[in-house]
């Protein structure tokens, strides 16, 4: 009720909105141009697929921004067996 509470709520809402909006600004060009560099399984021009992943990209966009900048692809999962196999082949 008090002005402080309202100010805090308004600020938090602005921050969340700002983050998601920045995500959208990054993601729209990313799904069109950059995505294949991070995940080569993205093939062809499936528009609906790209629209479907937009909301998630708007949340996780920093992850993809970092991968894009570092020129990295998506990682492979790390399970106990995969780690054990890796340490066995590179002791």
């Amino acid at each position: 009720m008090d002005g402080v509470g309202v100010a805090i709520a308004e600020t938090l809402i602005k921050i969340v909105r700002g983050y998601l909006f920045a995500g959208l600004v990054f993601s729209v060009p990313f799904v069109i141009f950059g995505i294949q560099r991070v995940d080569p399984s993205v093939k062809g021009w499936n528009v609906l697929f790209r629209v479907l992943i937009l909301p998630g990209l708007s949340v996780f966009w920093p992850l993809f921004a970092v991968r894009l900048v570092r020129g990295k692809r998506h990682p492979v999962e790390r399970t106990a067996h995969r780690l054990a196999a890796q340490s066995a082949s590179h002791p």
Binding site: I53, H74, E77, R78
Partner: peptide, 9 residues
């Protein structure tokens, strides 16, 4: 979407 399984692992 499966895209996220691959990209988040």
């Amino acid at each position: 979407h499966d895209f996220w399984l691959v990209n988040l692992t």
